[in-house]
Design a protein around this nucleic acid. Structure first.
Length: 196
DNA sequence: CCCTGATTCGC
DNA sequence: GCGAATCAGG
């Protein structure tokens, strides 16, 4: 792949929007984030200070960090919500069991969304099976061990010691591993309004 | 561990 | 000019 005008355009646009090099690389395809970064530098727009442009300077001194960190970000960071087409979770399986909160306040991770709860509603048998299977391999992470890419599916009873989080690798962008995404995000089709 | 951007340097 | 490898951080 080469840097056609079009691709450079996309690069500039995305970089300007504050997209990360890897995201840009993914979007463009055929290039790595390194390539993107390299290009960004060659284009002379390393510092996302797009604006007037002539502002050079990039005193990138290694070491020596003036205590100028507490200062607020001069970066508006205009996030374009151009990416929010994720399908809504097929209705949080079962009502969020807020009541399940034991004596201790169960704080759910930092993640963003949600805390489902198994509740074998109308989950496909296959999905359930694989979930059971996966839960055996679960890494049994604790709240604190959860990260951006560890499956946050809760397993067990929060009120007891038999409680942990799946912890396997999440599926790109999702909060759960493949198996759990399978039961968390039902394809509508299998959810059919049972009665109503 | 995952991810960021920054730099270097052979091609 | 290009970008993998490497570096430095978070």
């Amino acid at each position: 792949m080469s840097w056609t005008e079009e691709r450079v355009e996309t690069l500039k646009k995305m970089w300007g929007e504050g997209q990360s090099a890897s995201q840009i690389a993914k979007e463009l395809g055929g290039v790595t984030r390194n390539a993107v970064i390299g290009k960004v530098h060659r284009l002379g727009l390393s510092n996302r200070t797009g604006g007037g442009g002539s502002a050079k300077a990039a005193p990138k001194e290694k070491l020596a960090k003036p205590a100028a960190t507490a200062a607020p970000k001069p970066e508006p960071q205009v996030k374009t919500e151009a990416e929010a087409e994720e399908k809504a979770p097929a209705a949080p399986v079962s009502v969020v069991p807020a009541a399940a909160a034991p004596a201790r306040r169960q704080i759910i991770p930092a993640g963003q969304p949600l805390p489902p709860q198994p509740s074998a509603n109308e989950i496909s048998p296959e999905a359930l099976a694989s979930v059971r299977e996966v839960e055996k391999k679960a890494k049994k992470l604790t709240l604190m061990d959860l990260t951006e890419r560890t499956c946050k599916w809760p397993i067990g009873d929060p009120a007891t010691e038999d409680f942990w989080f799946c912890g396997l690798s999440v599926q790109q962008g999702k909060p759960y591993c493949e198996a759990h995404v399978g039961v968390a995000f039902q394809p509508m089709s299998s959810r059919r309004d049972r009665k109503r």
